[in-house]
Simulated scan of single mutants.
Amino acid sequence: MIALPDTLRVFERGWLSANNVLFIDDATQDTTLVDTGYVTHAAQTVALVENALDGRPLRRVINTHLHSDHCGGNAALQARWQPVTSIPAAEAPAVSIWDDDALSFVATGQQCTRFTFDDVLRDGDTLCLGGIDWQVIAAPGHDPHAVMLFAPQSRILISGDALWENGFGVIFPELDGESGFAEQAAILDCIDTLDARIVIPGHGRVFDDVAQAVTRARSRLEYLRSDPLRNATHAIRVLVKFKLLEAQTISREDLFAWFAGTPLMQRVRARYVAAQSMEAVFDQAMKALAKVGALVRDGEMVSNRD
């Protein structure tokens, strides 16, 4: 069991919703939630937070980045408590006018209820959360605008999707021909220099084998970097799996309609496998997910399998 400060607790949420990190410090009356899960889990997020707060108000929400599984509970939490909400600075213009395209929700075929923000997070900022000082560190790669939070004294890193125990999030910028591999490599180097002893990732369990996790992440990155089609193929499968996590059971017809109508799927196919039909790309993803037991077919119905 990895010991964390008394003012910090982690809700490990699985893969549809990102993990939530809740700070409660009665000495400073600080109650802050980092990342808020997916919109279909919003009621559960509110219930988890409300139970842990035990009558206290939630005063602040922070998002490491604005992918739907990290900010989908923002609107529900704002409706319940009106917390001050802090987002990465580069996302402020898109959130201000609610540009679904710029915010990736339309591109990935995912949902997010509109929310507002009160201030922004910039590389080099310092925050006091749970009576602990945290540095804001820019963490591009998986998402160009993402940030991490690092507590130098306790050597705890809230890494978002920049580092998991066994990898990191899809390198989305590369799917559109933009740089992402180099940035991911640089952020792994940065994590190395931090000498963190504990990592709270965006997905998966809290871990303390940090050096080994960075080594595994570097190996994974080189594998993807050596053939960018691998990153694209992985992204397709991840997005289909995410849709299945959301729907649980869906007809093949409806799943393919979602797949074919998702802009990022269309762009990935055009860039990487233009010679194949959209249906062929879809069938390949379905077969790959079925092979590893991530979905099951029953006639025309497709169901998620954990």
Rank of each mutant, 00 (worst) to 15 (best):
D118C: 00
F115C: 06
D143E: 10
H142K: 11
C128P: 15
A151K: 00
A162L: 07
T116G: 12
S154F: 12
L121A: 06
P144M: 14
R122N: 12
D125I: 00
R114P: 08
L121S: 03
Q110A: 13
T126S: 13
F105A: 13
I171E: 05
A138L: 10
I171H: 04
G131M: 14
G124S: 05
G131N: 14
R114L: 08
V170C: 10
H145S: 15
M148P: 05
S159C: 08
R155T: 00
G160A: 06
W134R: 04
L121Y: 05
S159P: 08
Q110T: 14
G141V: 09
L149Q: 03
V106S: 13
A146E: 01
L129W: 07
I156C: 00
G130Y: 01
I158D: 01
D118I: 04
W164P: 14
A151I: 13
S159H: 02
W134P: 04
H142L: 14
M148R: 06
D133V: 13
R114S: 11
F150W: 10
Q153E: 07
L149V: 06
L121P: 05
C128Y: 14
F105P: 13
V147N: 00
G169I: 08
Q135R: 08
G124N: 01
T116L: 11
A138T: 07
L157P: 01
F168P: 04
I171R: 05
T113N: 11
D161V: 09
T116P: 15
P152D: 09
Q110D: 13
F115Y: 09
F105C: 13
L121F: 07
L127K: 10
A139F: 03
D119Y: 01
F150M: 09
P152I: 08
G131V: 14
V147S: 01
M148F: 03
I137W: 01
P152S: 11
W134E: 02
W134G: 02
T113E: 11
G141E: 05
T126V: 09
L157K: 00
C128A: 15
Q110V: 15
D119T: 11
F150L: 07
D133A: 15
C128I: 15
C128N: 15
W134H: 04
D125R: 02
D119N: 09
D143Y: 12
P144A: 15
H142F: 04
G131H: 12
V147K: 08
C128Q: 15
G109F: 05
F150T: 02
I132N: 09
R122V: 07
I132K: 06
